[in-house]
C-alpha cells in the first residue's frame, strides 16, 4: 500500500505579520516557521495507518517551498514517514491553490498512491482548496474535514465534522484522498531515537520548474490588516490599576456585579 501525506510549513500564528515589499504577502523576516497544525493531524493519521498495515505499506511525505520547509519534512519523517519529497520552490508563497494542487497532482500521477492525506486547510492562507483539487485532478474519491478515520481492507470509514457539532459518516474506497480537521487524533511528539533515525531517511529534491505546468487562476493584489471596527476600549498598564478599572467597568456596564 502506498500512502502520501502533503504538508505545508507556516509561520507561528501567534506572530505579528507585516506586509512584504510587494505588499501581497507577509514579510518572512523575524517569523518562526513550523508544520501547519492541520497537517500534523494528517501525518499522525497516515503514520497510524502505516503502522496498521505494516511493512507492506510505504508512507511518503511531500512539501513545497524554499529550503526552510525541510525542517517540517524532518519532523514528519521523525513522526514515522518513510521517505520524503521536497518540491523546491522559492516562489511557493505566490502560487495560488490551483498551482499548488497542480504540482502535487503532477508528482502523484502515475505513482499509484492508494491514499493521500492532507490537512483540511493551511493556517496562513486557509483556502481549504488544495486537497479537494488534487483529488479532482487525479480522479480520486475524496472526503473532507475528517474528525474520525478507520481503514479496513480498502474501505475508509470517515467521520466528517459538520456545523453545530453534528458529524456525517461516509464510506469510500481507495484510491482516495482525505483532508484532516483539528482534533482527528493526538499527533505524537517525535522521540529522540526517531529523530536520529529520520536523519537517515531519503529526501528527494524536485525543482518546481520540472512539475509546475499551470498558470495561476487567482492573484493576491494586497495583504493588509483588517480595518479596525473601533468602539472597543483598550486597557494597558499596571496590574492593580487594570483590575480596578475592569471591576469599575463591570459594575457600570453589566448587571453581573453589584
Amino acid at each position: 500500500m502506498k500512502i502520501l501525506v502533503c504538508i505545508k510549513q507556516v509561520p507561528d500564528l501567534e506572530s505579528r505579520f507585516k506586509p512584504n515589499t510587494a505588499g501581497t504577502w507577509y514579510d518572512e523576516a523575524d517569523l518562526a516557521f513550523r508544520m501547519n497544525e492541520y497537517d500534523e493531524y494528517a501525518v499522525e493519521q497516515a503514520v497510524q495507518l502505516r503502522e496498521q498495515v505494516g511493512d507492506t505499506a510505504e508512507l511518503a511525505v511531500l512539501s513545497i517551498g524554499p529550503d526552510r520547509v525541510v525542517e517540517a519534512i524532518k519532523k514528519a519523517l521523525a513522526m514515522g514517514c518513510d521517505n520524503a519529497v521536497h518540491v523546491q520552490d522559492l516562489q511557493a508563497a505566490t502560487r495560488d491553490p490551483w498551482q499548488i494542487a497542480g504540482i502535487i497532482a503532477a508528482f502523484a500521477r502515475d505513482k499509484g498512491f492508494d491514499l493521500i492525506f492532507t490537512g483540511m486547510q493551511s493556517q496562513d492562507r486557509g483556502s481549504a482548496q488544495v486537497g479537494v483539487t488534487v483529488a479532482e485532478l487525479l480522479g480520486l474519491a475524496c472526503a473532507t474535514t475528517l474528525v474520525g478515520f478507520s481503514f479496513d481492507n480498502g474501505t475508509i470509514t470517515a467521520k466528517r465534522e459538520l456545523e453545530g457539532g453534528v458529524k456525517g459518516v461516509v464510506k469510500l474506497s481507495t484510491p482516495a484522498l482525505v483532508t484532516c480537521q483539528l482534533g482527528l487524533n493526538i499527533p505524537r511528539y517525535p522521540t529522540l531515537p526517531n529523530i536520529m533515525k529520520a536523519k537517515k531517511k531519503e529526501i528527494t529534491v524536485i525543482p518546481v520548474a520540472e512539475i509546475l505546468k499551470e498558470e495561476a487562476l487567482a492573484t493576491t493584489e494586497k495583504f493588509y490588516p483588517p480595518a479596525k471596527k473601533g468602539g472597543g476600549m483598550v486597557l494597558e498598564g499596571d496590574m492593580g490599576d487594570l483590575v480596578d478599572k475592569v471591576i469599575g467597568i463591570l459594575k457600570e456596564k453589566t448587571a453581573v456585579l453589584r
Partner: peptide, 23 residues
C-alpha cells in the same frame, strides 16, 4: 468586496488579502 476583487481573511484572521480572479 474590494477595489480589485474580494476580501478574504488569512493568518488566523489577523490579516486580510484582496484576491482577484484571473479566470
Amino acid at each position: 468586496l474590494t477595489e480589485e476583487g474580494f476580501e478574504v481573511g488569512c493568518c488566523n484572521a489577523k490579516m486580510r488579502r484582496s484576491v482577484k480572479p484571473a479566470s
